[in-house]
Nucleic acid binder design. Sequence first.
DNA 1: GTCTATGTTTGCGG
DNA 2: TCCGCAAACATAGA
Length: 276
Amino acid sequence: MPELPEVQTIVNDLAETGILHQVVSSVQVAWDKTIAGLDKKKFGRKIRGHHFTSIHRRGKYIVLGLSSGDTLLIHLRMTGRLYVTDANSPRLKHEHVIIGFGDQAALRFHDTRKFGRMYLTANADKVIGHLGPEPLDACFTPDKFFQMLAARKKMIKPLLLDQSFIAGLGNIYADEALWTAGIHPERQAHTLSETESRSLHKAIGAVLRLGLENFGTTLGGGQANFLYNGRRKGRNWDYLKVFRQTDLPCPRCRQPIERIVVGQRSTHICRECQKR
DNA sequence: GTCTATGTTTGCGG
DNA sequence: TCCGCAAACATAGA
């Protein structure tokens, strides 16, 4: 679930916890697959005794620089959570990796569905090199976006979800952006006019910034939902216009929002505002 | 208890 | 290039 705004919120919070520059004293891996094929022992050896020097986000990845020169990349996939708590509280049921900093604190990776992954590598590009442009980067201009669309025949929504095309959008913000721009998700990318392309470009920026301002989207009240710092809920749910708003009136024209399936993903549209 | 859906990504076959 | 499907898993809700 975590998309760009949720991942950025986590990164911002983590940066404030003070774990940066503290020496790692222990590494516990309770579910081997989480560390993406790396040997558990090697993984621990390469992190212990070092400290994190930097943290930032690229697409939906959390990127941590290590004093050893390696990079630890973390992808939360559907249900992953990353938070800092005290060093000695017992490991919770779905906490698969715990990185301890003396008796100060511990960074914990919690993931009910176990799809999330951590990658430890000397060459971060091996993991994130394939990613497309950052949608909030100044380099991602309306002109560039229009040219990118012109080269592709795919349906626009699956294309927006393609991380090698553009990095950071997921199902929530893709639906929100398409509704905001009044574009049908099944339109072929190259058929968008320059005006439509500009409007979509603007909408992508707007929905992401709104999500960021609201500390991400927490859906419903279930277990598998987005919590940053492991406990706080994002409040962007209250600002969603179409995502999971099936049968509720479109905020623009009052037509009921419909749920359809596009590229095997549930998709929410207003038939009136988003014509083919 | 059973069945279905789920926010992501990757890889395969056509 | 594009599309559909399956898999990696656990849980919530009907």
